[in-house]
Design a binder for these strands. Structure first.
Lengths: 200, 200
DNA sequence: CGTCTATTTGAATGTACTCAAAAGCGGTGG
DNA sequence: CCACCGCTTTTGAGTACATTCAAATAGACG
């Protein structure tokens, strides 16, 4: 069965890469050989702030949350990660310095993990792989800039409304307090916003 | 003199690329042939929201500002661009859709401009060039995430203090009202913060 | 069924904004 | 070189949006 699973048709990561770069069968196998699959339970930490991030992480199944904890102990969610997306602390991963982000599973999660040496080797030896990450990071910049614009221009209520329209599926999957922290407001205030909106 | 200026030793862009990827002399010339140099006066627009961004822009000399205008007419600064950095509206440039950002010169500025077809051609035919942009976008993601964390965790006063420490050179070069809009506060409020800080 | 966590509710507080006006500063023309 | 104009920064009063804290209610899970 292993040989079947290791084809571009059945592996979520290879399917994803192939949307942005053309891989040969040989390249596909080479890439997969650099990843290990891991499973995480709900609430389990993939990465804890302070430790060095050993892996960059492609989510095959499940949902994760990246967040920081400020000096008051409040959590601030940077990002939710779902199927077919990448999550990690890039600074920590590439520079091998202590992570500033925590990453925790919100659901039972399956992920493909790669170490920095393998990552660098694939980038160096396989232009298609580097192309794929050029595009991933390019999309990353675009979406982070979009979020920045939202945060700079919209009120709390507008940000929440926008979130419900853009990520309706996350509303079901993610506790409300994490959405509040993602949107930069307290859970109490989000609760009162929802009440106000529902009364309209 | 043209032949001297077209070597990696004297061109700011080539010097910059060579920090992240090794270029041959031939590749350097090929790259430069895809760019045109343009000069902008203070206050001149490099890009206006609503029009399609024809060029991505490497700043050789000067200072630019990327900003959006919200429905109330308020400006929000996304980014300041100075020597040896890139600026543009990536969505508009790559997808050829109307720009959401405005880009304006804050000083007389010299920039190297490239069109999307040349950009795609260089990416496709020269792995080193794609590598360079993989790294640029990767850094872009990292720095945008850092800014996001600042915005989510710090008070207005803390954000300003952090800005003065991280970008002391910009304090001299950029009007205070633009710094306020970059930091997500009104110019009046920044002014009162500065007074409060100076009284300590 | 009981425990633990998430969400809601409400009152008091604080942070940042709005609006209006004055002061400061830089560039330009006389 | 000075005077004026336009734009930026400062100042202050009143207001609005969002937080804090505390307590009640609702939901999830073993």
């Amino acid at each position: 069965m292993a040989s079947i699973e290791n084809t571009s048709m059945t592996n979520a990561l290879l399917i994803h890469i192939n949307k942005f770069a053309d891989l040969s069968e040989e390249q596909s196998e080479k890439i997969l050989s650099c990843f290990v699959s891991k499973k995480y339970q709900k609430k389990e930490y993939i990465l804890q702030a302070g430790s060095v991030s050993e892996h960059e992480c492609f989510i095959v199944e499940g949902c994760l949350r990246a967040f920081v904890v400020d000096y008051k102990g409040n959590e601030h969610t940077l990002r939710f990660g779902i199927e077919n997306s990448w999550i990690g602390d890039l600074d920590s991963f590439f520079k091998r310095e202590p992570a500033t982000y925590n990453i925790q599973a919100l659901e039972p999660t399956t992920a493909l993990m790669i170490r920095v040496d393998k990552m660098n080797e694939l980038m160096r030896t396989m232009p298609e792989f580097e192309q794929y990450f050029r595009i991933m990071f390019q999309y990353g910049v675009m979406s982070l800039q979009k979020r920045l614009v939202q945060d700079l221009t919209l009120s709390a209520e507008e940000r929440y409304t926008y979130f419900t329209e853009k990520y309706p599926h996350l509303l079901q999957r993610v506790p409300q307090k994490h959405i509040a922290s993602y949107l930069g407001m307290t859970p109490e205030f989000l609760s009162s916003l929802r009440k106000k909106i529902s009364q309209k």
